[in-house]
Design a protein around this nucleic acid. Structure first.
Lengths: 206, 206, 206, 206
DNA sequence: AATGAATGAGACTTCATTCAT
DNA sequence: TATGAATGAAGTCTCATTCAT
């Protein structure tokens, strides 16, 4: 049982170990950040020996980079799928916000890790993927809305995309920390209200 | 008795050293985070000996807590002043956003530090001040708007306050990293548009 | 499973390292005391890296506690064996004194460490073992002598035990420092004379 | 008031400061030993600034040496006086033991300091005084007893002196730590019994 | 594929000492 | 005579990494 499927093995013993290490790493790093996390603590939580981390990822840095790539890929896929399932750009925008909220609800630890590490110069290469593929979903949606004329043509789409992503990220963490039982739907409603200008809708005549 | 001191004793050799250390610390910590920053590097940048940090703050942790308190107090004062100078709540909201933007433009390093460290359980006590005094300015302004009827009564004011703060924080850092020459006024316009619902204003009929 | 281990597992690479560290530590600490001894010096004398001390004992304190326990256990065993091999209580007393003298002759460094550290509040828990198991041998022997009627019934046995232990300890160190070539038998004779009242034997008629 | 008595001043402000520092130092050093004691803690307990220690004694070492000399001189004087007040050598011996017990009852901290530091190579010069003047009192008394024929001529007087001093020192500390309320007279009785051979007096015929 | 004892560079921290006041 | 801010050498301890098993 232990050694079959020798070639092509995307699963098997080794892949299982790697996944366990991802899970342990994201939790440990979420608690005190990458620099403060120790390989020892990660290995212990994963139930393997310290040496195993180095056998599988070469270095602490290697583990973290692989973890970031793994998480970003999943987040990007989730959000892209959500955007594609919608008809109008504004519906898509709401759906993407919801997808990001749900993803961070399930992987709250990853949200923390992203927030604290995405600005470090150290992982720029990996974070570029985030900017391209995740912020890209927001940007594409907004661009589509501009094309369809449902959003003003002079909007700074890139900045708006960052603002949206940061807003959802920040409030996801805030919710987790302060109101963990509150349903995400409620948070979604508040954010969508804010973005759609429904906050002060009767002021638009001013 | 040897040297008469200005009332309140906020000067003197020791206080000057502490301020120099604040400046050095925020820069060093902004670069790679609290855990990765070394006391050695901070002391060196401040032009004092390593021991001086411990003489003045007791520990690396003590320095960081004092720094957070110092920065949060200043940010809170700036934003409060901005809010008070305005007539209507919506003007106040715009002014507060602008105040936060300008503060983070001048103290960009502090923005980075806040973003990455404000969610750690380690500094919860100090961060509570942030939540009370800084997010409080947003919340108070929104509440005033609710009272005056310019904002819907059922808005989740606390969450909206966090969303606004997080949006400004995230975009401030994004701007610094990606478009450092772009004037803050432009970023302010985008954010205000987003918040006021001017992004998709002609959609409100939908 | 890789290497079968002798029952009780008191060998192996790790156990050997710990023993080497005990030997080095007792020598270094004897020279200038626990507080003045450095982990660096201990590791160097043991021929291992500094980190190895912390890997094996967790802290300087942990090393010292383990060392005290190790030494006290050995001393207690030696003295207990000596007491048991004798017929009468007074022969046992002489034998125990001799056992303590010989032990401190071989492990002179440990004698120094005991004398200087056994009164610190820091190691009270470990020192309680000394009091129970080492002073206990003296106390038991004296008590047996009381029972057999060879010693006055109103003697404060506990205090006398401490006095004997302290006397042997002090003179062992004095001998080592001032007359290292003098045989222990000579010292033993003096102490036994003192204890047996042969110092001033013809005075008893007074 | 502050500056009179400029010459010959064995008292005045400076001498008072020195005495306060002796008192503080002996307490602090008794707790954790010379090496672990900090000048800061000593100064604080004495109610002066740290710099004052160095102004008065030049160094931590200087303070300790002065303290040892001060204490040893007092102990020697007390014991010498006790010996001279007696008629027979054996009465003198008892009186000296009692003097040492009483001194260590009053200056328990100094007893601890002596026990732990008197064997260090660091203070050999100062400790030589102890050996000459304090152990000397025991040795002289025993020698006088030999001359008067009340003690066997072949006794190793120097070793016996050390044994007596160490016995009193050890039991003084033990008493302080374990039975602080018990009167010294009781301890004195036990020790004198031991020394006079009254422990097993009816065995001498064996 | 995995382990864990050992390492050593580098971190935080302590503290005797100096010196301007 | 006394102070206390500042220093920097030296100490304890952490931890990513290596390697024999």
């Amino acid at each position: 049982m232990t050694r079959q499927r020798a070639a092509g093995g995307e699963d098997g013993r080794r892949a299982a170990t790697r996944l366990r290490l991802f899970g342990a790493a994201v939790e440990v790093i979420a608690e005190d950040g990458y620099a403060a996390a120790t390989v020892e603590a990660i290995a212990e939580r994963a139930g393997v020996a310290k040496g195993t981390v180095f056998y599988n990822f070469g270095s602490k840095d290697g583990l973290f980079t692989a973890l970031l790539e793994h998480g970003i890929r999943q987040l990007a896929e989730t959000m892209t799928r959500a955007a594609q399932a919608q008809e109008s750009p504004l519906e898509a925008l709401d759906a993407v916000i919801m997808a990001q909220l749900r993803f961070f609800e399930e992987y709250a630890a990853f949200a923390r890790v992203l927030l604290t590490e995405m600005w470090r110069t150290a992982w720029q290469e990996t974070i570029a993927t985030l900017r391209r593929e995740v912020l890209g979903v927001y940007a594409d949606t907004l661009r589509e809305a501009v094309i369809r004329g449902t959003v003003r043509a002079d909007l700074d789409v890139e900045t708006a995309a960052t603002a949206l992503f940061g807003m959802v990220l920040t409030t996801s963490i805030e919710r987790r920390a302060l109101h963990p039982t509150r349903p995400v739907e409620q948070l979604h409603a508040t954010l969508v209200d804010l973005v759609h200008g429904r906050v002060a809708d009767h002021l638009l005549s001013e």
